[in-house]
């Protein structure tokens, strides 16, 4: 979690330096939601998320260097520099993508869950999406099909609502007719649970139990993680006119890293010195990642035309592009 925090601070800094292009959405404040669930998974499980996806990639083991290189648009990035911040992808480690169309990935996760069961695997699919994704058609169509297939034990998917209170700058109260978001998932015959998304132990506890249940039943389940993002929606969200500085400060009192430290101090005697060492390690890892990203080569120009389709190359029209 500390690594994620330091990584996100660095990515924001590199964005300001002009090293990272496009959009940049950082995860600071929500770390426990990524770590709490992903640490409960096993090999072969597949994870889908929206475009706030750095934490999931790091949690799944993609490595800060390859993730940072992707943000820098370098050939060593986990998507060869072709996806960027919004489309981190690491199939080998179970990350089936960050997606840029809000809620568009929800049916993909349901379909992947079906595929896993179709092949009699006990792996599951996990799908992160924000509260803002719950008003788009893909959410409703995907949820309904998951609920439907779940009746036959054919849709082992764990839905995680990352309820950070805002769809970009529009608060839950202003974007959802029903503010009890998990109730809307229950409408599709899917079991739900609200969990404190700032407390990694609460998240992990719920995830352990629920993941086991999903593996056994093949039925979908939904965790509504109550969380808060400390940074702007994206790096360009400077003014944040939709919330006050006071509100952000108030939530900083429930910083997931502080909560984790306190719990670990109580339970296992974690000292400030231990934390300092962890922090130094994380800072060094991130510094190494930035260096790696800086020094990595940009993708070769020929990469432009690869990976469009598998077999036929680009449309021949590009051959004669004036």
């Amino acid at each position: 979690m500390i690594l994620i925090r330091r990584f996100e601070e660095a990515s924001e800094r590199e964005f300001r330096r002009g090293k990272i292009g496009g959009y940049l959405h950082v995860y600071s404040g929500q770390e426990a939601v990524a770590i709490g669930v992903i640490s409960a998974l096993k090999k072969g499980d597949v994870v889908y998320c929206g475009y706030r996806d750095h934490a999931q990639a790091l949690a799944l083991g993609s490595g800060p260097s390859r993730v940072m290189a992707e943000l820098f648009g370098k050939s060593t990035g986990i998507s060869k520099g072709k996806g960027g911040s919004m489309h981190l992808f690491d199939a080998a480690n179970g990350l089936y993508g960050g997606y840029g169309i809000v809620g568009g990935h929800i049916p993909l996760a349901a379909g992947s869950a079906y595929a896993l069961r179709y092949r009699n695997s006990d792996n599951i699919a996990v799908c992160y999406f924000g509260d803002g994704a719950m008003n788009i058609g893909s959410f409703h169509e995907g949820m309904n099909m998951a609920g439907l297939w779940g009746k036959d034990g054919l849709c082992p998917v764990l839905w995680i609502i990352e309820n950070n209170g805002y769809a970009m700058g529009t608060s839950v109260e202003r974007h959802s007719a029903l503010t009890d978001l998990s109730a809307r998932v229950r409408a599709y015959n899917i079991q739900t649970e609200k969990v404190d998304g700032q407390d990694v132990f609460a998240m992990r506890g719920a995830a352990d139990r629920i993941v086991r249940q999903i593996r056994e039943t093949g039925k979908p389940y939904c965790i509504e993680a109550m969380t808060y993002r400390f940074s702007g929606h994206g790096a360009a969200d400077i003014l944040q006119p939709y919330r006050s500085k006071d509100e952000v400060e108030k939530h900083r009192d429930r910083d997931p890293i502080t909560i984790m430290r306190k719990r670990l101090a109580e339970v296992s005697g974690l000292t400030d010195d231990d934390v300092k060492k962890m922090d130094e390690w994380a800072t060094e890892e991130v510094a190494k990642a930035v260096r790696f990203a800086e020094e990595s080569p940009v993708p070769d120009g020929s990469e432009l035309f690869t990976d469009v389709v598998a077999e036929h190359g680009p449309h021949p029209v590009s051959e004669d592009n004036g």
Partner: peptide
């Protein structure tokens, strides 16, 4: 047999295809 939900139908099929099925 799917519900009348083309986005859901295609979206789930994309997810299946990414995991190796041929919907």
């Amino acid at each position: 047999d799917t519900p009348i939900a083309e986005a859901g139908m295609v979206g789930t099929a994309v997810g299946m295809a990414m995991l190796g099925l041929r919907p």
